[in-house]
Protein backbone atom coordinates (compact mmCIF):
# COMPACT_ATOMS: atom_id res chain seq x y z
CA UNK A 1 0.00 0.00 0.00
CA UNK A 2 1.45 3.32 -1.03
CA UNK A 3 2.12 5.71 1.82
CA UNK A 4 0.01 8.68 0.79
CA UNK A 5 0.34 12.24 1.99
CA UNK A 6 -2.45 14.59 0.91
CA UNK A 7 -1.74 18.32 0.87
CA UNK A 8 -4.53 20.92 0.84
CA UNK A 9 -3.35 23.98 -1.01
CA UNK A 10 -5.28 27.09 -1.92
CA UNK A 11 -4.73 29.71 -4.54
CA UNK A 12 -5.37 33.06 -2.89
CA UNK A 13 -5.65 36.63 -4.04
CA UNK A 14 -2.54 38.50 -3.08
CA UNK A 15 -4.02 40.66 -0.35
CA UNK A 16 -1.01 42.92 -0.44
CA UNK A 17 -2.09 44.14 -3.87
CA UNK A 18 -5.76 44.87 -3.51
CA UNK A 19 -7.50 47.19 -5.93
CA UNK A 20 -10.85 48.95 -5.97
CA UNK A 21 -12.78 46.25 -7.81
CA UNK A 22 -11.69 43.52 -5.41
CA UNK A 23 -15.15 42.95 -3.99
CA UNK A 24 -18.35 42.14 -5.83
CA UNK A 25 -21.68 43.70 -4.94
CA UNK A 26 -22.84 40.56 -3.14
CA UNK A 27 -19.92 40.83 -0.74
CA UNK A 28 -17.88 38.00 -2.19
CA UNK A 29 -14.36 38.35 -3.47
CA UNK A 30 -13.88 39.21 -7.12
CA UNK A 31 -10.95 36.87 -7.67
CA UNK A 32 -10.67 37.72 -11.34
CA UNK A 33 -9.48 41.23 -10.48
CA UNK A 34 -6.52 40.16 -8.35
CA UNK A 35 -3.12 38.57 -8.80
CA UNK A 36 -3.31 35.01 -7.51
CA UNK A 37 -0.59 33.28 -5.52
CA UNK A 38 0.11 30.00 -3.70
CA UNK A 39 -1.12 30.58 -0.16
CA UNK A 40 2.15 31.14 1.76
CA UNK A 41 1.56 28.71 4.64
CA UNK A 42 0.46 26.02 2.19
CA UNK A 43 4.00 26.13 0.82
CA UNK A 44 5.26 25.37 4.34
CA UNK A 45 2.75 22.52 4.40
CA UNK A 46 3.99 21.23 1.05
CA UNK A 47 7.56 21.26 2.34
CA UNK A 48 6.59 19.23 5.39
CA UNK A 49 4.82 16.74 3.12
CA UNK A 50 7.90 16.48 0.91
CA UNK A 51 10.08 15.84 3.96
CA UNK A 52 7.74 13.02 4.94
CA UNK A 53 8.04 11.62 1.44
CA UNK A 54 11.84 11.89 1.69
CA UNK A 55 11.88 9.76 4.83
CA UNK A 56 9.43 7.07 3.69
CA UNK A 57 10.55 5.19 0.56
CA UNK A 58 7.87 5.00 -2.11
CA UNK A 59 5.62 7.60 -0.46
CA UNK A 60 3.61 9.90 -2.70
CA UNK A 61 2.45 13.47 -2.24
CA UNK A 62 -0.96 14.34 -3.65
CA UNK A 63 -2.14 17.94 -3.83
CA UNK A 64 -5.82 18.83 -3.58
CA UNK A 65 -7.03 22.32 -4.29
CA UNK A 66 -10.52 23.72 -4.50
CA UNK A 67 -11.11 26.74 -6.64
CA UNK A 68 -11.71 28.04 -10.15
CA UNK A 69 -9.92 26.55 -13.16
CA UNK A 70 -6.87 28.72 -12.85
CA UNK A 71 -6.06 27.19 -9.45
CA UNK A 72 -4.44 24.43 -11.53
CA UNK A 73 -1.48 26.83 -11.60
CA UNK A 74 -0.62 26.09 -8.00
CA UNK A 75 -0.98 22.35 -8.53
CA UNK A 76 1.65 22.59 -11.27
CA UNK A 77 3.75 24.75 -8.99
CA UNK A 78 3.55 22.03 -6.32
CA UNK A 79 4.58 19.43 -8.90
CA UNK A 80 7.63 21.49 -9.87
CA UNK A 81 8.68 21.28 -6.22
CA UNK A 82 8.09 17.56 -5.75
CA UNK A 83 4.37 16.69 -5.56
CA UNK A 84 3.41 13.60 -7.57
CA UNK A 85 -0.22 14.16 -8.48
CA UNK A 86 -2.89 16.80 -8.27
CA UNK A 87 -6.65 17.09 -8.03
CA UNK A 88 -8.69 20.21 -8.61
CA UNK A 89 -12.07 20.40 -6.94
CA UNK A 90 -13.90 22.79 -9.20
CA UNK A 91 -17.53 23.54 -9.93
CA UNK A 92 -19.67 26.68 -10.12
CA UNK A 93 -21.80 25.20 -7.38
CA UNK A 94 -18.91 25.56 -4.91
CA UNK A 95 -18.79 29.33 -5.36
CA UNK A 96 -19.47 31.37 -2.24
CA UNK A 97 -18.63 28.55 0.16
CA UNK A 98 -17.62 29.57 3.68
CA UNK A 99 -15.18 27.46 5.70
CA UNK A 100 -17.85 24.93 6.69
CA UNK A 101 -18.97 24.30 3.11
CA UNK A 102 -15.36 24.32 1.89
CA UNK A 103 -14.31 21.73 4.45
CA UNK A 104 -17.30 19.60 3.51
CA UNK A 105 -16.26 19.59 -0.17
CA UNK A 106 -12.59 19.03 0.66
CA UNK A 107 -13.41 16.18 3.02
CA UNK A 108 -15.32 14.40 0.25
CA UNK A 109 -12.38 14.88 -2.11
CA UNK A 110 -9.88 13.60 0.44
CA UNK A 111 -12.12 10.61 1.12
CA UNK A 112 -11.74 9.61 -2.50
CA UNK A 113 -8.01 9.37 -1.88
CA UNK A 114 -8.37 6.85 0.94
CA UNK A 115 -6.40 5.09 2.21
CA UNK A 116 -4.13 8.06 2.99
CA UNK A 117 -1.82 8.42 5.96
CA UNK A 118 -1.38 12.11 6.49
CA UNK A 119 -3.53 15.10 5.56
CA UNK A 120 -1.59 18.37 5.63
CA UNK A 121 -2.92 21.91 5.29
CA UNK A 122 -1.53 25.35 5.88
CA UNK A 123 -2.48 26.99 9.15
CA UNK A 124 -4.47 29.71 7.44
CA UNK A 125 -5.11 31.31 4.10
CA UNK A 126 -4.25 35.01 3.73
CA UNK A 127 -7.54 35.93 2.05
CA UNK A 128 -9.58 35.26 5.16
CA UNK A 129 -7.04 34.51 7.89
CA UNK A 130 -9.55 32.13 9.45
CA UNK A 131 -7.43 29.00 10.12
CA UNK A 132 -10.66 27.00 10.18
CA UNK A 133 -10.60 24.77 7.11
CA UNK A 134 -7.88 22.42 8.41
CA UNK A 135 -9.57 21.52 11.74
CA UNK A 136 -13.02 21.44 10.11
CA UNK A 137 -11.87 19.02 7.42
CA UNK A 138 -10.25 16.87 10.12
CA UNK A 139 -13.51 16.80 12.07
CA UNK A 140 -15.51 15.78 9.02
CA UNK A 141 -13.09 12.93 8.34
CA UNK A 142 -12.96 11.89 12.00
CA UNK A 143 -9.21 12.50 12.16
CA UNK A 144 -7.26 13.78 15.15
CA UNK A 145 -5.54 17.11 14.43
CA UNK A 146 -2.17 18.67 15.14
CA UNK A 147 -2.32 22.39 14.49
CA UNK A 148 0.53 24.94 14.14
CA UNK A 149 3.15 22.31 13.23
CA UNK A 150 6.59 23.83 13.09
CA UNK A 151 8.89 20.84 12.73
CA UNK A 152 8.59 17.27 11.60
CA UNK A 153 10.54 15.42 14.28
CA UNK A 154 10.01 11.93 12.85
CA UNK A 155 7.59 9.84 10.88
CA UNK A 156 7.15 6.16 10.08
CA UNK A 157 4.26 4.19 8.64
CA UNK A 158 2.47 4.07 11.99
CA UNK A 159 3.00 7.39 13.74
CA UNK A 160 4.28 10.92 13.47
CA UNK A 161 6.04 13.16 15.98
CA UNK A 162 5.58 16.88 15.46
CA UNK A 163 6.76 19.97 17.27
CA UNK A 164 4.05 22.61 17.33
CA UNK A 165 4.23 26.32 17.99
CA UNK A 166 2.00 27.73 20.71
CA UNK A 167 1.55 31.30 21.82
CA UNK A 168 3.90 30.91 24.71
CA UNK A 169 6.12 28.04 23.77
CA UNK A 170 6.41 24.77 21.93
CA UNK A 171 4.94 21.35 22.42
CA UNK A 172 6.02 18.01 20.94
CA UNK A 173 3.23 15.56 20.26
CA UNK A 174 2.95 12.04 18.94
CA UNK A 175 -0.04 10.82 16.97
CA UNK A 176 -0.99 7.60 15.25
CA UNK A 177 -1.82 7.75 11.54
CA UNK A 178 -3.94 8.86 9.81
CA UNK A 179 -3.84 12.37 11.21
CA UNK A 180 -4.48 15.92 10.02
CA UNK A 181 -1.67 18.44 10.45
CA UNK A 182 -1.83 22.20 9.87
CA UNK A 183 1.48 23.93 9.30
CA UNK A 184 2.61 27.25 10.72
CA UNK A 185 4.55 29.85 8.77
CA UNK A 186 7.49 29.40 11.14
CA UNK A 187 8.06 25.88 9.71
CA UNK A 188 10.82 25.48 7.12
CA UNK A 189 10.04 27.26 3.87
CA UNK A 190 9.44 25.31 0.72
CA UNK A 191 12.26 24.04 -1.44
CA UNK A 192 12.53 25.79 -4.81
CA UNK A 193 11.42 24.37 -8.13
CA UNK A 194 13.51 21.54 -9.42
CA UNK A 195 14.56 21.95 -13.07
CA UNK A 196 13.98 18.28 -13.90
CA UNK A 197 10.53 18.35 -12.38
CA UNK A 198 9.66 21.50 -14.29
CA UNK A 199 10.55 19.64 -17.50
CA UNK A 200 8.56 16.63 -16.40
CA UNK A 201 5.38 18.45 -15.41
CA UNK A 202 5.26 21.60 -17.52
CA UNK A 203 2.56 20.10 -19.72
CA UNK A 204 0.44 18.92 -16.81
CA UNK A 205 -3.09 20.14 -17.47
CA UNK A 206 -6.64 19.67 -16.36
CA UNK A 207 -9.04 18.42 -19.02
CA UNK A 208 -10.62 21.86 -19.16
CA UNK A 209 -7.26 23.48 -19.80
CA UNK A 210 -6.49 20.94 -22.52
CA UNK A 211 -9.59 21.96 -24.42
CA UNK A 212 -8.12 25.42 -24.77
CA UNK A 213 -4.81 24.17 -26.19
CA UNK A 214 -4.36 24.20 -29.95
CA UNK A 215 -2.02 21.22 -30.08
CA UNK A 216 -3.48 17.74 -29.65
CA UNK A 217 -2.06 16.21 -26.50
CA UNK A 218 -3.99 12.93 -26.56
CA UNK A 219 -1.00 10.81 -27.40
CA UNK A 220 1.39 12.57 -25.03
CA UNK A 221 -1.15 12.15 -22.27
CA UNK A 222 -1.37 8.48 -23.01
CA UNK A 223 2.37 8.01 -22.71
CA UNK A 224 2.68 10.22 -19.64
CA UNK A 225 -0.34 9.76 -17.40
CA UNK A 226 1.23 11.95 -14.68
CA UNK A 227 0.40 14.96 -16.81
CA UNK A 228 -3.28 14.61 -15.96
CA UNK A 229 -4.57 16.96 -13.29
CA UNK A 230 -7.91 15.43 -12.40
CA UNK A 231 -10.91 17.69 -11.96
CA UNK A 232 -13.66 16.77 -9.55
CA UNK A 233 -17.11 18.33 -9.80
CA UNK A 234 -19.99 18.28 -7.34
CA UNK A 235 -21.24 15.22 -9.18
CA UNK A 236 -17.89 13.43 -9.00
CA UNK A 237 -17.84 13.97 -5.25
CA UNK A 238 -21.51 13.03 -4.91
CA UNK A 239 -21.87 16.08 -2.73
CA UNK A 240 -25.21 17.18 -1.36
CA UNK A 241 -25.83 20.53 -3.00
CA UNK A 242 -27.56 22.04 0.02
CA UNK A 243 -24.26 21.73 1.91
CA UNK A 244 -22.34 23.69 -0.74
CA UNK A 245 -21.81 27.24 -1.87
CA UNK A 246 -23.84 30.10 -0.45
CA UNK A 247 -26.73 27.78 0.45
CA UNK A 248 -24.51 25.49 2.50
CA UNK A 249 -22.71 28.30 4.30
CA UNK A 250 -24.13 29.27 7.69
CA UNK A 251 -22.16 32.52 7.70
CA UNK A 252 -23.48 35.29 5.47
CA UNK A 253 -21.92 38.61 4.70
CA UNK A 254 -24.46 41.19 5.77
CA UNK A 255 -22.46 44.23 4.91
CA UNK A 256 -19.06 45.30 3.61
CA UNK A 257 -17.55 48.62 4.48
CA UNK A 258 -14.54 49.90 2.70
CA UNK A 259 -12.16 51.19 5.23
CA UNK A 260 -12.50 54.92 5.41
CA UNK A 261 -10.55 56.99 7.81
CA UNK A 262 -12.43 59.18 10.17
CA UNK A 263 -10.75 62.47 9.95
CA UNK A 264 -9.78 63.86 13.31
CA UNK A 265 -8.89 67.47 13.95
CA UNK A 266 -5.21 67.15 14.50
CA UNK A 267 -2.70 69.77 15.50
CA UNK A 268 0.21 69.85 13.08
CA UNK A 269 3.67 70.64 14.43
CA UNK A 270 7.18 70.80 13.01
CA UNK A 271 10.42 69.31 14.26
CA UNK A 272 11.57 72.72 15.48
CA UNK A 273 12.64 72.93 19.14
CA UNK A 274 9.85 75.23 20.23
CA UNK A 275 7.15 72.98 18.72
CA UNK A 276 8.53 69.86 20.43
CA UNK A 277 8.98 71.70 23.71
CA UNK A 278 5.41 73.04 23.53
CA UNK A 279 4.03 69.52 23.01
CA UNK A 280 6.14 67.94 25.76
CA UNK A 281 5.18 70.67 28.17
CA UNK A 282 1.52 70.10 27.40
CA UNK A 283 1.83 66.34 27.92
CA UNK A 284 3.62 66.78 31.22
CA UNK A 285 1.29 69.45 32.57
CA UNK A 286 -1.79 67.41 31.69
CA UNK A 287 -0.23 64.40 33.46
CA UNK A 288 -0.38 62.26 30.36
CA UNK A 289 3.30 61.61 30.88
CA UNK A 290 5.44 62.10 33.95
Amino acid sequence: MTFRIVVLAKQVPDTRNVGKDAMKADGTVNRAALPAIFNPEDLNALEMALRMKDSIPGAEVVVVSMGPGRAAEIIREAMYRGADRGFLVTDRKFAGSDTLATSYALSLAVKKLEPFHVLIAGRQAIDGDTAQVGPQTAEKLGLPQITYAEELVSIDTQKVIIRRRLERGVETVKAPLPVCITVHGSAPSCRPRNAKLVMKYKHARTTTELQEETRDYTELRHERPWLQITEWSVEDLQAETDKLGLAGSPTKVKKIDNVVLQHKESKVLTAADNDIDWLMKKLISSHIIG
Binding site: V18, G27, T251, K254, V259
Partner: peptide, 12 residues
Amino acid sequence: AFGGNIIATIIN
Protein backbone atom coordinates in the same frame (compact mmCIF):
# COMPACT_ATOMS: atom_id res chain seq x y z
CA ALA B 1 -11.25 40.95 6.02
CA PHE B 2 -9.21 40.69 2.95
CA GLY B 3 -5.98 41.84 4.49
CA GLY B 4 -7.86 44.55 6.37
CA ASN B 5 -8.96 46.42 3.28
CA ILE B 6 -12.59 46.00 4.18
CA ILE B 7 -14.66 45.61 7.31
CA ALA B 8 -17.23 42.86 7.01
CA THR B 9 -20.32 42.29 9.11
CA ILE B 10 -21.05 38.58 9.25
CA ILE B 11 -24.27 37.01 10.46
CA ASN B 12 -25.63 33.49 10.90
